[in-house]
Amino acid sequence: NQASVVANQLIPINTALTLVMMRAEVVTPMGIPAVDIPRLVSMQVNRAVPLGTTLMPDMVKGYA
């Protein structure tokens, strides 16, 4: 099973992602693959992402 990107903290809307905000976890359903974490750094979320939420492609501006 491939790990997905999960929020390590509450990420407010329009926040630029940093490594500290994300962790890799095997979850269902799968979200953004953990291998993409370096690519996500400095991209912004388009909604508030609660702690423990799996990041989906439509939550990150410019990802999809």
Rank of each mutant, 00 (worst) to 15 (best):
N1Q: 15
N1A: 15
Q2G: 15
Q2T: 12
Q2P: 15
A3F: 06
A3H: 14
S4K: 02
V5R: 00
V5K: 00
V6T: 09
A7S: 08
A7N: 01
A7D: 01
A7Y: 01
N8L: 06
Q9T: 11
Q9S: 14
L10E: 13
L10N: 13
L10T: 11
L10F: 09
I11C: 05
I11A: 01
P12C: 07
P12R: 08
P12E: 10
I13W: 07
N14F: 13
T15M: 08
T15N: 11
A16K: 05
L17H: 00
L17D: 01
T18D: 05
T18C: 05
L19H: 11
L19I: 09
L19M: 11
V20G: 11
V20E: 13
V20K: 06
M21C: 03
M21S: 10
M22H: 00
M22S: 00
A24Q: 14
A24W: 06
E25C: 04
E25M: 04
V26P: 10
V27Q: 15
V27H: 04
V27M: 15
V27D: 02
T28M: 05
P29K: 10
M30V: 13
M30Y: 12
M30W: 04
G31M: 02
G31A: 03
I32P: 01
A34W: 11
A34M: 04
V35K: 04
D36Y: 05
R39H: 06
R39S: 10
L40D: 00
V41L: 12
S42A: 14
M43G: 06
M43W: 08
Q44H: 07
V45R: 00
V45N: 03
V45P: 03
N46Q: 12
R47N: 12
R47A: 14
A48W: 06
A48H: 12
V49P: 02
P50C: 06
L51M: 15
T54Q: 04
T54C: 04
L55W: 01
M56Q: 14
M56F: 05
P57V: 09
P57S: 13
P57G: 13
D58S: 09
D58Y: 05
M59Q: 09
M59T: 08
V60Y: 01
V60H: 01
K61S: 13
K61T: 11
G62P: 06
G62K: 10
G62N: 14
Y63L: 14
Y63M: 08
Y63D: 04
A64S: 15
